[in-house]
Structures are given as C-alpha cells and as structure tokens.
Design a protein around this nucleic acid. Sequence first.
DNA 1: GAAATAAGTCAACATGGCTGACATAAAATC
DNA 2: GATTTTATGTCAGCCATGTTGACTTATTTC
Lengths: 164, 164
Amino acid sequence: MADIKSQANPLFLTEEEIRQGIELLFYAYRDFTSDPDEILAEYGFGRAHHRVLHFVNRNPGMTVSQLLAILRITKQSLARVLGALVEQGFIRQDQGSVDRRQRLLYLTESGEALERRVSAPQRDRVARAYGEAGAEAVAGYRKVLYGLIGPAERDSILKSIERR
Amino acid sequence: MADIKSQANPLFLTEEEIRQGIELLFYAYRDFTSDPDEILAEYGFGRAHHRVLHFVNRNPGMTVSQLLAILRITKQSLARVLGALVEQGFIRQDQGSVDRRQRLLYLTESGEALERRVSAPQRDRVARAYGEAGAEAVAGYRKVLYGLIGPAERDSILKSIERR
DNA sequence: GAAATAAGTCAACATGGCTGACATAAAATC
DNA sequence: GATTTTATGTCAGCCATGTTGACTTATTTC
C-alpha cells in the first residue's frame, strides 16, 4: 500500500503545493530578468541580446546551430539579434576550421565587458539568494530545476555543467 | 577571519556556481512555459492569457490593480488580454460592493475549466520534478526562489502563500 | 555528381510589451 | 458641497521579439 501511495504521490503533494511552486518560479523569473534591462537599453538592446551574450560567453566557439538549439527560437529571430551584436563589434564569427560552413561564435573584448556589466546585477541577485538560503537549499534548488527541464535536454545540460 | 570570509561569501560561491544557477533557471523556465502553448493556441490565446487565468483562479475577486501589480505590466497591455477573456466568457467582472470603482475578477465555469486544462501539463511537470527531487530538495527550491524575488514583494507573497 | 547540411536573407505577420493622452465614475479630502 | 484623487477603461501608435515560408550559397557527405 505504501508503495502505491508513494508511487502515485511520493510527497503527498497537494495542488496547493504545486501551484505555489509554479508561482514562485513566475515571480523569481520575473524579477531575475528585470535586472539587466536598464543597462541593455543604453545600447538599444533587449533580453534577447543578453541571452546571446550569456551563452556565447559560456560556450566560446559554439556554432549558430548550437545556440539556436539552446534558445529554442528560429534562425530568423536569432539573425536580427545576433546580427546587431556582430555589427556593433560585441560578437565575432570565425569560420570553422574542421567544418568551414560553421560560424564559430566568440565574444570580443567589448562583448565580454558588456556581458559582465549586464549580467552583474543578475549574478549578485543569485549570489545573495544562495548565501541567504544556504548550501543545502542550493542543492535542492538545483535538483528541482534540473527536473523541470525537458528530459531530452537534461543529459546534455548536465554534461555541459560537469565539463567545467 | 572566518567571520570575514563567511560574510563576504558564505558558501565560497564561485562565478561558475552562480552562472549555473542562472542557466538552470533559464532552462527550467523555458520548458515550463512551453507546456501550455499548444492548448492556448486552440483559443487564439497566448501566455499572457494563461497568466491572467492562473492568478485570477488563485485570487478570486482580486481587483484589476492587484493583477497589474503582480504581472508588472501596464494597464493597456492587460486590457487587450483581459478584454478578450471577458468577451469570450472566461472571466467575469463584478462591481465591488465596498468600493464600486473596483472591478472584481472571477473565473466563470468555463474559465475554470480552461484554466485547469491549460495548467495541467505545467502542474504535472512540477509534480514530477518535486517527486523525483524529494521533500528536502523542494524546501531548498522554495527557499532560493523566494530569495530571488525582489525584497519589496517578498513579504506579501509569503503572506499570500501562508494564508492558504 | 547528387544530396544533405550550416548558415544567411527577404518578406510578411502575430503577440505582447510600451508611451501618451484622455474619459468616466466613484471615493476621499478640504 | 466643491475639489482632488483613485480605479478603471480606451484610443492610437510604436517597438522588441517571436513566427512561417521561400530561397540562396558554400561546404560536406554519400
């Protein structure tokens, strides 16, 4: 009997608990993304540009396809944003040496500076929340968020995190 | 000395750890919000409609101002979305009895049905992640997300959660 | 040599944010 | 009681960022 119960609902989860989890994610994401907006506006950029800066910084030399797969947007949507960043000298595109069809993405020096500046308030917010919550809570945070990611991508994200 | 260290960086947080926390939030939110989209499309609705359905369901009788404060969008942005939901009979607006300027928001029966249907995959995703991660991890998840919310709103959210 | 792939581009459209200006009704204040 | 403030609604237009569809070019793979 215990088996059946725990299989069906291992934590005796109420709808209330679930909905609170949903709301917390909404609120946290809302405030978390609001941080960089003012700085971005100075350059005429938006959140989409920030995302590109973040992921290219994290994965120097990544291909356009890889970036598209992470962002889950279309090539045409990315083109506008990426084009602006390249045009204004924040991102450099090198031809791949193995596969010369590829355009490998790198932040330029000014791109790195911009990324750091734009991300700073976001990093501070996360650092503060981590510090206040404690190491154990952080482990739980990571575990649950990881479980929220679609199963197909979970492994590759875990690998990309472990690789560092 | 230990005091100084722990004040500055209580968890010995590396930039890598912080950035992983940021990315996990991005990935989780990306997949978490993708769930309801297909169902919403049947009605010609989008994510904005879903948010309204969710919060009116959670706070029956809430005012337009309260909803605006939660969503952090302008009155004009909300008007489009809320207007469509009212027009199609998913949300009812009652005049406030204490303050008759207010329009108190309620889901109609079909609104409740729609909310349940649209939210179902999202709830399932959170329930699964909670179940897999375990009760302790969930507590940590909540603690960290709560810390990510802007301080001004933290208390009122805590209260609205405890009230249930 | 043909087919598949990586990337780019043009055009058109939808969603959901935004600002600014103004209107109405009701409540609160002087 | 007149005035001011508040809650809500509405018109008009703009912008950022997503979408689909069609087509091109260079390169790699078969």
